[in-house]
Design a protein around this nucleic acid. Structure first.
Lengths: 211, 211
DNA sequence: ACGTCAATCCCCGAATGTGGGGAGGTGGCA
DNA sequence: TGCCACCTCCCCACATTCGGGGATTGACGT
C-alpha cells in the first residue's frame, strides 16, 4: 500500500516517516509540509492513501481533501490532526475524508487505522466517532417514529408559535383567543412534554421535530 | 462494568453470556430474549451498558433503544446485529445507540467495543463507520458560512445552559456567578442575536447550531 | 343519558424575565 | 499610558411566566 503524508511539523513528519517505513506492506511514497503541489505529487507518486494534517501553511488540509476527493475519488484521505472540534470534523468528513484520527493515537492504532481505511473501513478516533454518532442523534427526525405526546391541535399550534419566539400575549392575538387560554394550553404542553419552562419546551420541540 | 444483553437467539445469547462472563472487569447482570420488560429490568439490574439485538419478538431493538435512551440517557446502548443496511444503522443511531457492531465481529473486538463505549467512544464496525462517513459526504453543502455573532466565551456558555432549559438562577449557580451577571450576559446575547426573549434565543441557537 | 375530553375563559400569588441604567476590575494592545 | 473588550456585580421598574385552583360549552362515544 502506497502512502503519502502531508504534515507541516518537521519533527512529526520525520517521526511518522520512520514509523511508516518500518511497517511491512506499507510504502511511504512521499512526505511533504503542505499539499500545494498535490496534483503533480499524486500523479507521480500514485498513493493509495493520504495522511493529511489540517493546519498547514499555504493550503488547508480540508480544502486539499475536498479537491483531491473530487479529482481522485479512489484515493483514501485520512485526516491526522490534534483538533477534535466538531466543526473541523464535520467539514473534513463532508469534504471527503474517509477517516479522522487524532495525533495522540498510539502507533499501532495508527497502523490499524491505515489498514482499516484501506480495507474499506472508516478509521475514527473514539472521541471523534462519538461526536459523529451524536450528530445523528441530534438530527431532525427523518423517518423515525418520533414520540407521540398527544398534543391537541390547538396545543400544537401554540407550541409552534412559541418556537417562533412569540409571547403568550402575541400567541393569544395570533390565535384569536384569550391570554388565559394560551396559558391553559401551555400548562397542558408542559405536562405532556415533561418540561417546566418555555425554553425547555422550545428546545424539546426543535430537537424532536415536533414543529 | 455491568452489562445487560438482549438477544432472542438462545445459542447466540448463551455464547455471548459465556464470553462476557469470562472477562474480568465485566459483569453480565442479565440476558433476555427481548426487551419487553426493560423498564423493570433496568431499574433492578442497573446496567452500565446494553448489548441490543435488532430483530426480536415483541419489541424491536431500535424502538427499545429509543425508549431507554429517553428514559436513561446515561446508559450506553450498543447495537449488536447481523444487519448492515443503512436504514437500520441510521435509525439505530438516531434512536440513541452509541455504537453499532456486527455479529461477525471477533470476540476480542467485541470486548474492545464494549470497553470503547464505556470509555466514551462509539464502537462502529468498519463497514458501519464507512457508511456513516459516507452519509456526511452526501450531506448538502453544510453551512460553512455560519453567521458569527461574536459571542464571548461566557456569553456562549450562558446560551448553552439556556438551551438546556435552565433558568437565570440555575445558570448563575452552574457558572458560579451572580444572577445579575447572567442577566448582563443575556442582555448582550439578545443584542448580538437580535432577539428579545429566551425562546427566540433558544430557537435561534438550535436552528443555527450555535450550541 | 352520561361521562370524557377538547376548547375556551377566569383569578390569585409567587417566581422569573426584560430594559434601562451604573460601576469596578482585569488584561491586552497601541 | 490610555483605551477597549471582557467579566463581574448592583438597582429600579415593569412585563411576563408559572402553578395552583375553577368554570362553561359542545362534540363524541357507549
Amino acid at each position: 500500500m502506497r502512502i503519502l503524508l502531508y504534515e507541516d511539523n518537521p519533527a512529526i513528519r520525520d517521526a511518522l516517516s520512520v514509523l511508516l517505513s518500518g511497517i511491512p506492506g506499507l510504502e511511504l511514497v512521499g512526505a511533504f509540509p503542505n499539499p500545494l503541489q498535490w496534483e503533480r505529487q499524486l500523479a507521480s507518486l500514485r498513493p493509495d492513501l493520504i495522511l493529511m494534517d489540517i493546519e498547514m501553511p499555504g493550503l488547508d488540509g480540508i480544502d486539499a481533501t475536498r479537491a483531491i476527493h473530487a479529482a481522485l475519488p479512489d484515493v483514501n484521505v485520512v485526516i491526522l490532526t490534534v483538533f477534535d472540534e466538531e466543526d473541523k470534523i464535520f467539514r473534513a468528513l463532508c469534504a471527503g475524508a474517509v477517516g479522522y484520527v487524532l495525533k495522540n493515537t498510539t502507533p499501532d492504532r495508527l497502523i490499524a487505522a491505515i489498514e482499516d481505511a484501506h480495507a474499506g473501513g472508516a478509521p475514527l478516533s473514539p472521541s471523534i466517532a462519538r461526536k459523529a454518532v451524536r450528530f445523528f442523534q441530534q438530527l431532525p427526525p427523518l423517518k423515525t417514529t418520533r414520540p407521540d405526546y398527544t398534543l391537541t391541535a390547538r396545543e400544537h399550534e401554540t407550541l409552534r408559535y412559541l418556537v417562533e419566539g412569540l409571547s403568550y400575549k402575541m400567541i393569544a392575538d395570533r390565535m384569536n383567543i384569550s391570554y388565559e387560554t394560551v396559558r391553559t394550553y401551555m400548562k397542558h404542553i408542559y405536562e405532556k412534554l415533561h418540561v417546566v419552562s418555555m425554553t425547555e419546551a422550545v428546545a424539546k420541540a426543535l430537537r424532536e421535530g415536533l414543529v
